[in-house]
Amino acid sequence: MKDRSYFIEAALRYEELLESGQIISLDAFVAQEPPEVREDLRAFLEFNLTLGELDEPAILSPAEEAAASRVMALARAAFERELSGEPVQNLTDLRKARQVTVGRLARQLKLPVDLLARLERGKVRVATIPERLIERLADALQTTTSTVQAALLAPPPVSAAARLNAEDGIVEPEEPVVSFAQAFADSAPTDEERAAWADVLPGA
């Protein structure tokens, strides 16, 4: 299966052809590409042409500004870690390196254990994780916030169940990736846990 870069590059090639004055139909263009990607590529090219270039920039609300800053900090930390050549550790690796169990770390953070386990499985949308949790994880794991940010974007460990299912050819429905607020609500927090995170999750 071709990755995202392939589709982006193919769309840019198609646009370059149009720009050079060669009006070639989408069908004729995709016919030159590998058969297994033609259908998806054709749909994407039409989608891309229809949506067109980016519109005017939006003026961001304070909440959006904060969300964008959080995302940029996360991505930057992960990129720096990647460029440094150091092995990328996920949250489970960081926790195990400190020889702490999920339960103990969850109690330390005043988080439901299910939520922390879900975070480690990569099933919480990273962009929605509160900065305060990143800071507290860094404190608890005696590391830097950028290490935690990079860990949150690192691939999660492959679960034993997933390995067994792959060997047996069993296909189970994939666990959805949800926002931090949703994952918190799903994990039936105690009153103490609710109180501890009330300022970042007012409705929880």
Binding site: L54, D55, A67, V71
Partner: peptide
């Protein structure tokens, strides 16, 4: 620009952050 495009398409705030990331 990215937030603007995602907003026009009706994505919620969390989804806009996902697209930016």
């Amino acid at each position: 620009w990215i937030f603007g495009r995602a907003r026009i398409l009706g994505l919620d705030e969390d989804a806009r952050s996902d697209v930016l990331l």
